[in-house]
Structure formats: C-alpha cells, structure tokens
Design a binder for these strands. Structure first.
Lengths: 334, 334
DNA sequence: GTTTAGCACTCTCGGTGGGCGAGTGCTAAC
DNA sequence: GTTAGCACTCGCCCACCGAGAGTGCTAAAC
C-alpha cells in the first residue's frame, strides 16, 4: 500500500501516468522497476489504479483515491503561510452574507479550486424588529431584522392599500407581540393567528399578520449558497471538454444539485470527501468535493468546501477546509 | 455594398468563410462566381473582409461588421414570440435588485448570449428613513431606506458603544432632519456637519452623523451590475481558447472593466454597439457588445445589453435589447 | 467595359504509415 | 522474493499525399 501512496502523490504532483521506473525511484525502497511492476499489477487487480493504455503508467481510480485519503494520508496543519493568509481575511466586522461571499472567495483563492459556502439557515434566529412601509400603489415594503443583525426585505403587493398610520399601527402590534421570539415560533404563531379569524382582530391586523408571515417565510427560506472561483476549474486539463465544463458551470449556477450534495454533509462530523462518482452526479464524475459542516455552539449552521478535479492536492486542501470552517464559525459567533 | 450585406448575413448564419460560389447564389443577382470574386477583392482592399487563408472564403472584419450594422441593417420589431416571451417576464412586483437580476437572465436566455444589466445609480433617490440598531460589542447595524423602497444595510464598528436609547435619539434626529431630501444632498450636508465640530452638537450626534454618512456613501456607491449566461459564450467556436475564455470570465467577475465600458453608453441615445476591438479591451477583441441606456422620466438610470461573439445575430439582438430596455424602464417606473 | 469561362495555383483538411520512446508482461536466472 | 533481459504494444509526432475548396489572373465573349 505504500506504493499506492507514492503513486497517488506523484500523480497529484504532475498529472501524468506514473510508470514503474519513476515509481521505483520515488518509493525510496531500492527496488527495481521490475518488482514495482508486479506490485502495480496487483494494485490494478484490486481496482485501485488503471493504465489509460497499454504503454502508459498507472493512474489512480476513484477507489484508489478513496484508500489514499482514508488510510494513507497524514493530515497536518495548514502551512504557516496558508494559515496566515486565512487569518488575515477574517478580520473586520461583517454580516453573514458578506462573510459567506468572502469565505467562498477565500477558499477558491487559496486552493485554486472552486470554493462553495452554504449560508447558515436562519431557523435559530430570533425576531427582532419588523418595519412595514407604504410604497406607491397597493405595495408595501416589509423589512425584517433578526437579532443577529441580518436584514431581509421584500416588496409585497396587497389587495387594498394602507395608510401610513395603519401600517404603523400594524408594525407596533407585531413588534410588541413578537420581539425576541424565535423566528420559527413566530412563523408558527402567525399561521395560527391566520386561522383564528373569529379572534378579536380587525381586518387590518389580519393583513398585517399575513404580510409578516410572508416576509418571515421568505427570510427563513433564504438559505443561499455562494460559489466562487469556478473559472479555476478551467485550468485543469482533465476537465477540458468544453461541453462538459459548460454543463458543470450551468449546474453551479442552478445550485440546486450542489445544495443537495452539501445537505448530505450536514450530519457528518469533520471533513467529508466525495471522490469522482461518489457524489452520485454524473457531472462531477471527474471531480472531488471536500466539505465540512461548520457549527456555532455545537449547532450545525452550514456547510462549506471546495470542488476540484479528483486529482487535487488533498493533503493541502483538507486542512485548509477544516481551518476555514473553524474560522468562519468563530467569525459568526462574533 | 449589397454583397457585404449578404456576405455578413451568410457568415452570421453558419459561421464559415463565405466563398464566391455561395455568395453568388445568395446574392440573387445572377452574377457568376468570377464576378463576385472581383467584388470580394475590392471589399478586401477596403478592409471590410479578410480571408483566413488563401483558399478559404471571406470573413467580415470588425470594420465590415461596423458598416453592416450602421448602414446595411434594417431593424424591425422583435419577432412576436420573442416579444411575448419578454412581456411575460416583466409581470409581478419586484424591487430594483431582483428586477436587475431577472432582466439579465432574461436577456441571456432569449439571445443565448451573456446578458448584463447595470443597476440604477441611486443618486436621485430620496432619503426616507434610517435605523440604527445596537448589536453585540461596539457594533451598530445601520439600515437606510430610500423612497423607492430600496434597503441598504451595513454593520459598522464604532470606537465606543451606544445604549439603545442613545441610538434611538440619534435615529430620530437623523430622520427628523433629512427625511425626503435627496441622498446626494444628504451626503453633502452630513459632510459639512462633520466639519463644523464647533456646532451645538454633542458627541453622540457627531458619531451618529458619521454613521449615517458611512451608510449613505455605501448606498450611493452601490451601483452594481449583474451578468448572466456567461456560459452561453462557451458554445461559440470562435471564442474557443480555454485560456482566453477564462480571462474573459474572470473579467466578468471583477466587473470593473465591464462597468467602465457600460459607463460610456450612458450618455448615448438609443442602442450602442461595440464591435471587436472598438471596446478598447483586448479581452473583448472577438466579442461585440450591444447596449442601451434605459431611462425613467427622461433621466438615464442605467445601462443594459448583451455580450457575444462579433458574429452574432445583430438583426435579432438589437431590437431585443431595445425593447427590454423599455420594458425594464416601465417596470422601474412601477 | 463589364462579365464570364478556363486554368494554374495555394492552402486546409483528413487519412496513412513509419519511427521513437515509454512502459508493460513474461520468463528465466540470481 | 527479486531482478535482468527481451519481445511486444501503444500513443505520439511528423511527414506525406490526395481531395476539395477557393482564389487570382488572363483572355475571350457579350
């Protein structure tokens, strides 16, 4: 198995099939190429390597990478300069959204791969304040502020128009009743209120509650994800097909499938790695994902990671992803 | 010149150098290929076409396209189905930001090129309301709302912390003084206030004014632009170089240079077209830009357009850009 | 004098075939 | 178990060739 390790490392380094001669030199065991050939044949039987054609060296398969990252790889801390670069970028105050964006860019910049960060879900946030402001026509601008300082706003068209005074009254009512409560609870409560039409609420309040419910729901569903550095993937020869790459980029823009994959990492502990077809999406067949959930107060709030070719520098990338998650968590904890 | 028109049309249609034989058929003038060859040689002398090599047909140059769009092209209305598709997508209420995003996507989807929409500058918007809310630590969440219903928010770290009461007082003061004024004026006024330290303002107010100035400035500078459908450009053979394409995409992500080009269109009336190197940016050498400013109440508020290969279907794209601008303007006018 | 036919010429493109280098698998010897 | 030797297999590069497309030029036709 030592040979597999050396082979993978070598292949990661220069991207070309590794032959018996080079491997025998790299292994440092003073074995002749002929011996190495036997070993390589064994590895091929195990399905860990393949040769692209008769007279080329061997290349790791997905299974080969799997064994490599699972049992052959020793992960140390990120290199000092990487660590420093990471630390520097987490200075200054930021709201969750810019934090997500900049973290994503950071990941992609430092690994030269595509970086992806999934935004914290908002379920645990507390309701802080709501504002309802009249616009022209029968439209209302609703602004929701959570205790974490996130701001959601939305324009809502209503059937009838409100006077500013009416809206102010509604605003006061909502703030009085809900401030400090968990957003999830607020939503539930609003829903109940909506059903109890026989309550001592006038029509205005009913509408206000509807508005609030709409904006709260919108805010809750706003778990976005941000992908940066897609273009880095264009530099890898193995992903070269223009059509394939286009499909990949389009998938990134849709985000739906990516979100799906990331969702699966939420439960897992520590860094998760999907190699090649393990992700279950054809488009990512030649790609690997290195992800990890990040948590605040032992509560998973999101997932981040990188996407690159299966032939990526796992040794370097894994600790970077790991540390970035910790730093992001720390930044979110404020 | 009639020949140039036919040649360009033909080349746009199937992307291959046009030979004398095909051209003589397309032109509908019953002239032999030999005659056409003479004409083509003339066109080449004028710098309007080139042949990629001795034995290929001719391809339009940038200058050739220029003449084509300037004087040979008859622009009619968009096709009914295009028009219908456009109309449909401008239904429903939207704030400026989602309008910009969806318009950009719309443009790229309908033209199969990259769509770009520059967000309205906010200079003409009136100050409506500001909120200052305390967060943990010495941080303040500042929210600015304009009369158009746009919301800007920003987290600001202050040297000293404020009590909620102090912030409320500051908020009241700012709203009392500035509500309804033009944002530009507000900014100017705030700057003056900052200088007149000897005024009868206490330290708290000073800080509040500083905060307000920061967020107002941020809001003013937030003229964003949104680019959609970049991946469409990957389907054009003539932009095929992977490295070139990567540079192009990176430029799109930076946005700075693109913004610069779009800025130049702000003054012009009607649809503007930059062909090949006319944009002045090497990266766009094989690309054309079709843009137009859009205006609300005779006031230019932004620019939109598409980016594609020089060999694009101008005949179809130009009216689409034109109509989209009108529809967007109408939507912004509410 | 404009248009046309004819012709020699040029250049790209696709396929073919041979050398070379890299690397393999096998066998026999250490 | 390890190694040297050897025949063999491919992929890659390059040179070559013929076909096809299209040109420019010249001389004849209208």
């Amino acid at each position: 198995m030592h040979f597999l390790k050396v082979l993978v490392e070598r292949y990661i380094k220069d991207g070309q099939p590794v032959g018996s001669r080079t491997l025998s030199k790299d292994a440092g065991l003073d074995l002749s190429p002929a011996t190495v050939r036997n070993v390589m044949a064994d590895l091929e039987d195990l399905g860990l390597v393949v040769s692209p054609h008769t007279s080329a060296g061997r290349v790791p398969t997905a299974a080969g990478y799997r064994v490599f990252v699972d049992s052959l790889l020793t992960v140390h801390q990120p290199s000092p300069q990487d660590l420093e670069a990471l630390r520097q970028r987490f200075a200054g105050p930021m709201d969750a959204k810019s934090l997500v964006e900049s973290t994503s860019r950071l990941l992609s910049g430092i690994t030269h791969l595509a970086g992806v960060v999934m935004l914290p879900r908002h379920e645990r946030h507390a309701f802080r304040q709501i504002e309802l402001l009249p616009l022209s026509g029968a439209r209302v601008l609703a602004i929701l502020i959570t205790s974490e300082g996130e701001v959601h706003n939305r324009i809502i068209t209503t059937e009838r128009s409100f006077t500013p005074a009416q809206l102010e009254e509604a605003t006061n009512y909502l703030n009085r009743v809900f401030t400090g409560q968990d957003i999830k609870d607020v939503r539930k409560r609003l829903l109940e209120d909506l059903k109890d039409t026989h309550q001592n609420m006038d029509a205005l309040m009913m509408r206000a509650v509807t508005l609030a419910h709409e904006v709260v729901t919108a805010a809750e569903g706003a778990d976005d994800c941000f992908i940066a550095g897609q273009t880095n993937l264009m530099e890898f020869g193995e992903l070269a097909g223009m059509d394939r790459l286009k499909q990949l980029f389009d998938a990134f823009n849709q985000k739906r499938e990516i979100l799906h994959i990331l969702d699966r990492c939420i439960a897992a502990d520590g860094v998760q790695i999907f190699i090649g077809d393990e992700s279950g999406y054809d488009l990512l067949d030649d790609c690997s994902l290195v992800t990890t959930a990040y948590r605040v107060d032992d509560q998973v709030v999101g997932v981040l990671g990188v996407i690159g070719p299966t032939r990526m520098d796992y040794q370097r990338v894994i600790p970077i992803v790991d540390v970035t998650a910790r730093l992001l968590a720390a930044a979110l904890r404020q």
